[in-house]
């Protein structure tokens, strides 16, 4: 089992969505319900940028700058350290907010939502083209969460958290097809996920205080235990791509652990894949 190291203080109420990108000098993640994006600087300090009522997830843009999902839309920054300005709104229903997302193999953004009251079927997985065109990919999901591609882009792994499992799709002509269960963990709720360069799938198990790594054949090949129950997401980065950064939360806890809301790091054997940038 890999050892885990606490990187920051418990800075976040609901830390989520870590992304490593050289374009912004390392790691960014969100304090989702504060509407803030955090950047870990090389000197260990953390910068915080407020982007709206919600900051759900973010990715770099192909032409520079970055995109962030806000409560019901997307905002764009032209500079790596710029402040994003609103771009498009995907829906108007105030009972639904953005949650996790990702980028597909040709630079389109996957945007997942969830209802504030978590009504089954109230959420959607959307896809946003570089020109802002929006397509519904999966209607009637509940808490659309982590999504990522295999290294050859032939498979996509996806968590709709209340299903209690991670699913896998085939990717055919850019579309997600043949959805089927990939793995059902014995404990915890599948939250954020990331795929490494060997095709292993790292899944944050919210409520269980751990991250599990599954081989492409769905065997557990590694597990990281944290001192915090609400483990929300993970990504690979660092100079050699072998630092697994893990976000945590204290959302709705009456008795949060002292470290709940901190960022953690574990050294792993297989490096991650370069982040895919949004074409918009």
């Amino acid at each position: 089992m890999a050892a885990v190291e606490q990187v920051t203080d418990a800075l976040c109420y609901h830390g989520e969505g870590p992304v490593w990108s050289p374009t912004w000098g390392g790691l960014r993640w969100v304090d989702m319900l504060a509407g803030d994006v955090l950047t870990l600087r090389s000197d260990g300090s953390v910068d915080r940028v407020h982007v709206g009522d919600v900051a759900a997830f973010l990715r770099p843009r192909v032409g520079g700058g970055w995109v962030v999902a806000t409560e019901r839309g997307l905002a764009l920054a032209d500079e790596a350290d710029g402040i994003p300005a609103p771009w498009i709104e995907l829906w108007t229903d105030p009972s639904v907010r953005m949650n996790e997302g990702g980028v597909d193999g040709i630079g389109r953004l996957w945007c997942g939502s969830m209802g504030y009251d978590r009504v089954p079927g109230s959420a959607t997985l959307y896809r946003v083209d570089g020109d802002g065109h929006v397509t519904t990919v999966l209607p009637q999901v509940t808490i659309s969460n982590g999504i990522d591609l295999s290294p050859d882009h032939r498979h996509a792994y996806y968590n709709d958290t209340p299903t209690g499992r991670t699913d896998v799709f085939d990717v055919e002509d850019g579309e997600l097809t043949r959805r089927r269960p990939f793995v059902t963990p014995a404990t915890g709720h599948p939250d954020g996920l990331t795929v490494d360069s060997a095709g292993n799938v790292w899944v944050a198990l919210n409520g269980a205080g751990r991250v599990q790594c599954y081989s492409p054949s769905a065997e557990v090949v590694a597990e990281i235990t944290l001192p915090v129950r609400l483990v929300t997401s993970c990504t690979l980065g660092g100079d050699d791509g072998r630092d697994l950064f893990i976000t945590t939360s204290r959302e709705n806890l009456d008795d949060p652990e002292p470290e709940a809301g901190a960022l953690f790091r574990a050294r792993v054997d297989v490096p991650g894949l370069p982040v895919r940038a949004f074409a918009g």
Binding site: G35, D36, R48, H50, V51, G82, I83, P84, A85, P86
Partner: peptide
């Protein structure tokens, strides 16, 4: 003046106190 960026900047600064 890019008014969208101006507004986003002011909102960030206000949110930070």
């Amino acid at each position: 003046m890019d008014l969208a960026k101006q507004q986003a900047f002011v909102e960030h600064v206000r949110a930070r106190g």
